[in-house]
Every structure is written in structure tokens, then in C-alpha cells.
Amino acid sequence: MREEAHRFGRARHLVGIAGVPEGARGATGVIVLNAGLVHRIGPFRLHVELTRQLNAAGYPTLRFDLSTLGDSCASGGQQTRTQQVCADVDDAMKLLAERAGCERFVLVGLCSGAQNAHVVAATDPRVSGAVFLDGYAFRTLGYKLRHYLPRLVDPARWARRLTRRGGGDASVTPKAAQPVFAVAPAPRDEVIADFTGMVERGMKLYLVYSGGISNYFNHARQFRECFGKVMSHPAVTTRYAAETDHTYILTGDRARLLDGIGGWLSHNFPPANAGRHP
């Protein structure tokens, strides 16, 4: 299988790499969105490894840069960012439909990519599945108990705190946070309504959250705490990977993530049956 480089889109402003396996005509296509500001290859080449592994399993793929990210330009229109994202993914779906005959799509996004995938998945009937990596989450009561209780009963932490208050540890200065990735918050009721609408429409969802977002998510139970009973729907699969970081810097963690996505896809969108909406 050979990958194809494309300049495409309504203003020929987008750049992406399509992978079209032999005999994959009509299969469900997988589209991978940018993670933060990283260009289409993904953090540590995550998106290259993912798309090639999925190509080997028989899925057509497209990893591409949204407007103004990576090698893509602005479309020149007067659109909000959300409208741009929807229009860009529409362009991506049209390209993969043309190259591989795809009619149904699975979107994959990490962090802001998950947010963008969520926006499109909530509104576009061609999207039949989505993989949200460190997507929307909210600090729940359970989160706060799990986060603060161990600290309250930790004598070493109290000792450090008292020492600092006494001015005894002047060498420790707070570090300025380096902005890397962020998911802008959305109203929780809105997110729950979106998830509910997606599964009612027949979509399959795979949510994988990492230990790298422990500042707002810290346990597998939190999926249900955040989003309620829709997380128990048979169409929803969740996984909490406490040991990994946000961008899967270790190759073993990355391999387990890719195997998880591949397994979820083959279970829900088997290549032989792909293209037929569940």
C-alpha cells in the first residue's frame, strides 16, 4: 500500500496524507485530526503509526491539517473556528469518499482534536464512530475526593507546607506553566446531550483518557461521574490509562493505545462489513 499526498478542500487550502489499502473500496474511513498545534504526523508521530496500522488492517485513512495548522492555509472565508472545522472535516470526508469510496467515517482526535471531532460527530450523519483521546471532562465531586483526601492525611505534605510558610524553602519557586494543549470547556449538559444524541443515532464511541490529565480526571469511574448513564450504553467503550502521559511519549504506551483503537474498530466496524451503517 502506498500513501498519497493531497492538497485539497474547498479552497485547496488543506494538506493531508491518505492511505488507501488494496480492496478497501467502500470501507469505513478513519480521519485523524490535529492534536493541538502539532502538524498532521501527530505527537511523536502517533498519527503516522496509527494510520499505517489501520491501513494494514484494511481501513482507508486520512491524516490532515485543519485550516491554518501544519501545512494548511486559511480558507479565506468569514467563518467561526467551529464552522471552519466542520467545513474542513467535510472536505476531508469528500476526499476519502473520492479516493476510497467511503460513505461512513470514524473520527479520531486527541485533546483539541477530540473537541473538534466531538463538534463534527454531534452534527454530521456521515460520522458513525469517534475516538476521543483526553476529550471533554469535568472535575466531579469524586475527582475532588480522590485528589484532595490523600493529601489531607499525608503528614509529609503538611510538613512541607509548614516549612514553606516559615520561609524555610526559598529555593523552591513556582514554575511558569508552558501552554501546550488545552480543551476549552463546554457546558456539561450540552456535552451529555451530544453523547446521548450520538449513541441514539447509532454511533459507536471510544473514550480513552490518560493519566496526563490528572489535573481534571483521575479515575475510570469519572466517565460515569462526568457524563452519567450514557457512558453505560453498549455503544460506548471507555478506558482510563492512569500510567500514561497526555501525548503517549513512550512507545510501549503508544503501541497499547493503537492496539486498543484497532481492536475497538475491528469489533465495531469490521473491515468486511464496513460501509454498512449499524
Binding site: 496526563g212 500510567e243 500514561t244 511519549i249
Partner: peptide
């Protein structure tokens, strides 16, 4: 990186980080 508390909740094993440089085999 193996012990980077800003990245991991707990230090990783030596084998987890072996034969890699900053994200790449």
C-alpha cells in the same frame, strides 16, 4: 523523562523508557 512528575503520575520503569529518545524508538 522516566521520573518527570509533570508528565507521569508515577515514575516509569527503566524498561518502559529503554531504547527510545524523547518519544521515538
Amino acid at each position: 523523562l522516566r521520573e518527570d512528575a509533570g508528565r507521569f503520575n508515577a515514575p516509569r520503569s527503566h524498561s518502559d523508557v529503554a531504547e527510545q529518545w524523547l518519544g521515538f524508538d
